[in-house]
Design a protein around this nucleic acid. Structure first.
Length: 267
DNA sequence: AACACGACCTGGTAGC
DNA sequence: TGCTACCAGGTCGTGT
């Protein structure tokens, strides 16, 4: 589920439904969700605190509370964070939950149990190591070109490196490269300026469109509306004809994951 | 520094 | 039906 657009949708839902709510209690059902911190650490820090801000950086969610405490959540592969009207009726598999005013709850569901939560005391510490935010004005073609000039990484791995640009994952990295007609295996420093400009445009466009889709797809709490799903041109389309040139989409391993691309368009 | 790879977890599905 | 193998939108730690 979650790359930047899906995480953004999660954040907007939380803002709409839980902003200003006071925390009654916090509990992680599995210790590894919050390890090395403990339920006591987090429950104590958040008790009676008001949710003042919901922030997203890349794929990371930060819940800011009145005391200055920050609860960081990373959804990893299958996590989801959302508000439910009655905390007593949370799902059996809920990994962690917060009771908030009115008997409602913020629940963290995650079938694979890879997602993590952590309490921070300062914003600087919480966002350490994260690269540039691709949907901010700071992300320009010039910035991308500068980063690219210093990297021999294959283009796809470059885009997925969260210390460079924060938020692209396996799907949208592949889609952006397709739109910019760049071979995912090409070392970044060898991609020429016109294509880097196209890539910058493609990243912003793909993410912006995908945010719109994700907001619609996740508009009902904890639910996914397939009809609104972002329409991928290459991702998960191995052997299908390319929409532009008709060649068959290829799947290759890169960094232990699948990369999809069109060998006709992307060079 | 850069890269490959396994670990972390669970569930779904394709193939036999 | 049941088993196996492989796949999955992410990241981290280890080893080369």
């Amino acid at each position: 589920m979650p790359e930047l657009p899906e995480v953004e949708a999660v954040c907007r839902n939380l803002r709409r439904e839980a902003m200003g709510a006071r925390v009654i209690q916090f509990h992680a059902a599995r210790p590894n969700v919050i390890a090395p911190q403990t339920n006591e650490d987090i429950a104590q820090a958040l008790a009676n605190q008001t949710l003042t801000r919901v922030e997203r950086r890349g794929k990371n969610i930060y819940l800011h509370f009145g005391s200055g405490a920050i609860l960081h959540t990373h959804l990893r592969m299958t996590g989801n964070l959302f508000v439910i009207p009655d905390i007593r009726f949370r799902a059996a598999g809920t990994r962690a939950w917060m009771e908030i005013e009115g008997g409602r709850g913020i629940v963290f569901d995650d079938p694979r149990n890879l997602g993590r939560m952590r309490l921070y005391r300062s914003a600087a510490e919480a966002v350490r190591g994260l690269g540039i935010e691709p949907l901010s004005p700071d992300f320009t073609a010039a910035v991308l070109a500068e980063e690219a000039s210093r990297s021999r990484q294959p283009a796809k791995l470059f885009l997925m490196d969260q210390t460079r640009i924060a938020g692209l994952g396996n799907i949208y990295a592949a889609e952006a490269l397709f739109r910019a007609r760049i071979d995912p295996r090409k070392p970044m420093m060898r991609v020429r300026r016109p294509k880097l400009d196209a890539l910058h445009r493609a990243i912003v466009d793909v993410l912006t469109e995908a945010v719109e889709s994700a907001v619609l797809a996740y508009s009902s709490p904890g639910h996914f509306n397939e009809a609104e799903e972002f329409d991928c041109a290459v991702y998960d389309r191995e052997s299908e004809p390319c929409r532009v040139c008709g060649r068959r989409i290829k799947r290759i391993p890169q960094g232990g994951r699948s990369t999809y691309f069109c060998p006709g368009c992307q060079r």
